[in-house]
Amino acid sequence: MKIGVLGMQGDIREHIQALRQLDCDTQIVKKLKDLKEVDGLIIPGGESTTITRLMKLTGIWDEIKEMAKEGFPIFGTCAGLVVLAREITNAKEQETLGLLDVSVERNGYGRQINSFEAEIEVEGLELPVRGVFIRAPIITHVGDDVKVLSSHRGRPVLVAQGKVLAATFHPELVKGESRIHRLFVEMVNGK
């Protein structure tokens, strides 16, 4: 099993490191052909406008939409979640993949000065996860098929729908934390 990290822009290295802790084979996905070699894909944190532009430039955008129809597993963090969402309430003109039935508000908590860390409870995990929220989006609405695995201040922060997993925070930025990535690896493994 090999898991790809989308290599357009953002904190690619941190996701690779988290996957290595789980002894996963990893691959940075920069071209269409890289996508064919992986069993699942992580869309990292970064700037969603930049990542979207570059995914279109490389042709990865359309290919992922096709692959997702066949149940290709995808995990997005922060910007990755924004890219996956059905719509962005405060940037309607920004196109999204629409693979996750949620509405998001970009930079929902405000600017960088409002970025924060907080302990969050995650369904199925015994101990809380240190959630790092950086200019994070807020999920304002979830569809009926979306399962909420964790909430903070009454808003969903970790959600799953079929083979799509998405977090508004950055588990990859916490050293030694690999439990959220493990959820994704299990999803790829079909558990």
Binding site: G10, G46, N114, E117, E119, I134
Partner: peptide
């Protein structure tokens, strides 16, 4: 409790800018 302006949060924004212009 929410902690603002921590080293992780400050350094984290820079990590998000990587491979960018």
């Amino acid at each position: 409790m929410e902690r603002h302006g921590t080293w992780t949060v400050k350094k984290g924004l820079a990590e998000m800018l990587k491979n960018g212009v």
